[in-house]
Design a binder for these strands. Structure first.
Lengths: 339, 339
DNA sequence: CTGAAAGCGCTAACAC
DNA sequence: GTGTTAGCGCTTTCAG
């Protein structure tokens, strides 16, 4: 195993100094064309590969950003990660991935780990457990860009990229009303994450605007899994005042709701069902699931763009932007009462 | 913005030298309990956070591994990534993600980028375009662990984690035969990736073992998208000798196949359909899709374990293991001819 | 346009 | 058990 070639080897080869080589390689400093070319030729000949670590240690820039998400296994987050990585790649940034698995402790550890790795910035979507966000303070203190997406927190004064979740909730509800449903229930999560609250607010507002009563018994707080969906639907359909439509916390919840409804012979659209996320499967289940598309790829692209803007500013927080994406309604069979 | 505290600050604070601090922090070297405790106390008091970069530059170990996958958006890869990250986290390793998007050039660039970042090893699943694998040679030359999973290549003499794809193909075919199907077609990819070839071999072997003829016109080479599935099924069903069952390259392909079959009123299980991957949606489409589960989480866990073994050896390649996981059949409606 | 030299924060011989 | 010192590979003043 021979040692790797460094700029010293190139310098020796050409009888110049390392500074000359460094300058030539960096491309910006004043250098004669002749030396530059000679350096590049020698670099190639010696199979030189820069050590970004050394450069990072000296310059303080690693060109690595840390990305904290609950789990890459959720398609929504996978899509965001995909777009973030793609959006940053051309600018030379790489991405370290850290999954919190919806655990606050893991998230705290993630921030610590990423900071120790000297990342140039962090993007995160909070775990369901996260209520206190003080573990992110250090990122801001170090004046490194922190961007929160989707699951954000008002205590953190940082740029955010979110969906207009109020609108999403309103949109889902209004759609059901437009389709002719009148007694609309909601299966959501107990966790105090803003997006879920906002959706609920949108739901209530839409009911109010249409002069429909808000029945608290129609709102089930539990989890968002398929199982939770089944459970919620079961509970709702056993009530005296049965709903004629159910909004599910996400598409997986909706899957559970539909399963239950099929079992008791209330197959949608007889009882309307709508979800959130537009998962890959949603178009292919029976009945096809109406849903609210949350545009994860747009979200990732926006995060990448925001980050690149922030690193260009001396103070990344001098101009805190909050990007809010518009949800869109995907109408399918599960809410198509009319046909 | 005050400067970050280093081990020098701790040393000054305690009137000892940096080496003492370094030793105390590292935990292994001989150090009196008193100094060790004093160092930890001071570290805490001064809000010290180690700079892994500096340590990495000196020691040559970054505790970062590079992960190259076609795309995190595919649930199969997302699951593998999930398990790899989880499996490595406790040993202090972090993961840099690089997506090839099925492009050879991107993959080449990925290897280069990751090597420049001085990763301690690379795990990769090859892009569909990859036939020549010489871009990975440098990883081996640097004596860094390289592990290939799922989409591997025989030219690369490195440890691998794969599914027994021959068996998977055989299993899918035998299942269809067991269910009573007799003229079984296959929609797969043109790309020369081993796993797809192996599955095809398994398919042919199963036909042969059951004394069924192998009809080359029953094998469609194209892509694996939903669209490709539709196209393949269309082509097959227009033939004179129409198949009574179709094996699809993956679950997405199967989705397209089913769509087409529904359109021409040959809804499965009338024509049997089976896919590969057991995607999240497969259980919920109509009809439910039978499929071969490829156990991505097991695969990720195995990769992590293998890597940890390799870094422990002086020569990571002294004992090249090939871990082969067994596929499992998931029987659902789309192949249930009997009911 | 190029060279000399200091130093980023940490580790690891080598002394004592 | 602790101190001294020389780098890891690169960037970046400051001179010339």
């Amino acid at each position: 195993m021979k040692k790797k070639t460094t700029i010293y080897d190139i310098a020796k080869e050409l009888n110049v100094t390392v500074s000359t080589v460094s300058r030539a390689l960096s491309g910006f400093a004043a250098i004669s064309d002749a030396t530059r070319e000679a350096v590049f030729a020698a670099a190639k000949r010696l199979n030189y590969s820069p050590n970004r670590l050394a450069s990072a240690l000296k310059s303080g820039k690693t060109y690595i950003i840390g990305l904290i998400v609950p789990s890459v296994q959720a398609h929504f987050f996978a899509s965001i990660i995909h777009s973030i990585e793609e959006g940053l790649k051309d600018s030379g940034y790489r991405v370290i991935l850290y999954q919190s698995n919806e655990s606050l402790n893991a998230e705290i550890n993630g921030v610590k780990t990423l900071l120790e790795a000297q990342v140039d910035g962090i993007m995160a979507s909070l775990s369901l457990e996260t209520e206190d966000v003080s573990h992110f303070a250090e990122v801001i203190k170090q004046n490194k860009p922190l961007i929160l997406f989707d699951r954000v927190h008002e205590k953190l004064k940082v740029p955010t990229v979110t969906l207009d979740d109020y609108k999403a909730g309103y949109m889902a509800t209004q759609h059901l009303i437009d389709q002719g449903y009148k007694n609309i229930a909601y299966v959501t999560t107990v966790h105090q994450i803003r997006i879920f609250n906002d959706r609920l607010k949108g739901y209530k507002a839409a009911l109010a605007d249409n002069e429909l009563p808000i029945n608290e018994e129609n709102i089930i707080f539990g989890g968002l899994s398929i199982k939770d969906g089944r459970f919620g639907a079961g509970k709702l359909m056993r009530a005296t005042n049965k709903p004629d439509a159910i909004i599910a916390g996400d598409d997986f919840t909706a899957l559970g709701v539909i399963k239950k409804l099929k079992e008791i012979d209330e197959t949608p659209p007889k009882i309307g069902v709508i979800g959130f996320a537009n998962e890959a499967f949603s178009a292919y289940i029976t009945p096809n699931l109406s849903t609210i598309d949350q545009h994860p790829n747009q979200m990732g692209t926006a995060c990448a763009k925001l980050f690149l803007e922030m690193v260009q500013q001396a103070n990344p927080y001098q101009n805190i932007k909050h990007i809010v994406l518009a949800p869109s309604l995907v109408e399918r069979q599960s809410t198509d009462l009319k046909t």
